[in-house]
Amino acid sequence: MKLAGILCVLLALTAGGLLWQTQRHGEAHTRYASLSDEMQHNRVVMDELRAMTADAR
Rank of each mutant, 00 (worst) to 15 (best):
residue 43 R to H: 11
residue 51 A to F: 00
residue 40 Q to V: 06
residue 9 V to E: 13
residue 42 N to T: 04
residue 14 T to S: 10
residue 24 R to M: 07
residue 18 L to W: 11
residue 40 Q to K: 10
residue 7 L to K: 09
residue 46 M to F: 05
residue 35 L to G: 10
residue 41 H to I: 02
residue 42 N to R: 11
residue 35 L to K: 11
residue 30 T to N: 05
residue 57 R to I: 05
residue 39 M to F: 06
residue 23 Q to Y: 15
residue 52 M to Y: 02
residue 48 E to I: 04
residue 26 G to S: 09
residue 50 R to A: 11
residue 21 Q to F: 10
residue 35 L to I: 08
residue 44 V to P: 00
residue 24 R to N: 06
residue 18 L to D: 01
residue 21 Q to E: 09
residue 56 A to V: 13
residue 38 E to D: 13
residue 3 L to D: 15
residue 53 T to M: 06
residue 38 E to N: 07
residue 23 Q to V: 13
residue 17 G to M: 04
residue 16 G to D: 05
residue 4 A to T: 10
residue 57 R to Y: 03
residue 23 Q to T: 13
residue 1 M to L: 12
residue 14 T to I: 07
residue 21 Q to C: 11
residue 14 T to W: 03
residue 27 E to M: 06
residue 48 E to G: 03
residue 38 E to M: 03
residue 14 T to C: 13
residue 9 V to L: 12
residue 2 K to A: 14
residue 45 V to F: 00
residue 22 T to V: 03
residue 37 D to G: 04
residue 44 V to I: 11
residue 10 L to D: 06
residue 2 K to F: 08
residue 45 V to N: 05
residue 54 A to P: 00
residue 24 R to H: 04
residue 32 Y to L: 12
residue 8 C to S: 14
residue 20 W to S: 13
residue 32 Y to F: 07
residue 50 R to H: 13
residue 20 W to I: 08
residue 17 G to T: 12
residue 31 R to D: 10
residue 55 D to L: 10
residue 8 C to A: 15
residue 31 R to G: 02
residue 23 Q to K: 14
residue 11 L to M: 14
residue 51 A to R: 08
residue 22 T to H: 07
residue 40 Q to W: 01
residue 45 V to Y: 00
residue 22 T to N: 12
residue 52 M to I: 08
residue 38 E to L: 08
residue 32 Y to N: 09
residue 13 L to R: 01
residue 23 Q to A: 13
residue 18 L to Q: 13
residue 14 T to L: 12
residue 49 L to W: 05
residue 42 N to V: 02
residue 6 I to L: 15
residue 18 L to V: 15
residue 43 R to N: 07
